[in-house]
Nucleic acid binder design. Sequence first.
DNA 1: CAAACTTATCGTATATTTGCGATAAACAAT
DNA 2: ATTGTTTATCGCAAATATACGATAAGTTTG
Lengths: 108, 108
Amino acid sequence: MAYTSTDYKEDEIQMARFAKALSHPARIAIVKLLASMDTCFCGEIVEELPIAQATVSQHLKELKESGLIQGCIEPPKIRYCIEPENWKKAQQLFSNFWQQSYLSQIEK
Amino acid sequence: MAYTSTDYKEDEIQMARFAKALSHPARIAIVKLLASMDTCFCGEIVEELPIAQATVSQHLKELKESGLIQGCIEPPKIRYCIEPENWKKAQQLFSNFWQQSYLSQIEK
DNA sequence: CAAACTTATCGTATATTTGCGATAAACAAT
DNA sequence: ATTGTTTATCGCAAATATACGATAAGTTTG
C-alpha cells in the first residue's frame, strides 16, 4: 500500500483493509461458509467454489492476512475458522460506518 | 468482472461490489465526509484529501458506479451525496453478513 | 466573446489482482 | 521407503487499479 496514517486515519485504513478482503465474491462465499459451519477444511471450501484449488488457497491467504480468518494445522489438513477478535473489530467499524450517515438519524 | 451469477449468488456479487467500493481509504474518507455533511461539492472533498483532483474524481466515479453515492449538477459545481436506496441495501447486506457468524449467537 | 472556475476525461506509467497448471512441502498410511 | 492426501507456493499471463499532469467540457461572470 502506498498510503500511510499521515494521509488517512488509522480506522479508515483498517476498514479499507477489511473491505478489500471482502471485495471478491469468492472471499465472501468463503467467509460465509466459515461463519455458518463454525469451522471447515480447505478441501470442503474447494468443493463449494467454482474455482481451482490454487485460487482458493490464494483467497484464503488474503483473508488470513486481513485477519478475518485463521487456520490451524490438523495434519494432514488445515482447519479454517473466523478470527473472533478481528471479526468483532470489523463488525464494529462497519456498524459505526453505516450508522454515521444522516440517513440513520432520519430512520430513528 | 469475470464471474457471473452462475458462479456466485447475486447477493454475494452485490456485497462484493459494495465492499470493493469501500476498499480504499480515500473512498472511505469521501463517503464519511458525505455521510457527515449531508452533501458537499467535489471541491471540498479535494481539499480534505491528500491526493490530486484527478484522482479524487476517479474515486468519485467508482463510488457512483457502485451506487453508494450520487452527484447532481448545480452549475458550475457538482453536489455529491449518499444514494439512500443503495445505502440501505448495503447496510442490510453487511449487517446480515456480520450477524450470520456463530459468534453473534454466542454474544446473545 | 473572453476569462475564470469547476469537474471530468485522456494518456500514461506503475503496481496489484486474479486465475491457473505445475510443482513442492508436509504428513499419513501402507 | 514408497505412495497417497492435503494444502501452499511458483511462475506466468491477462486484467484492473492507482495516481498524476495535461487538457477538455460545461457554466458563470466580466
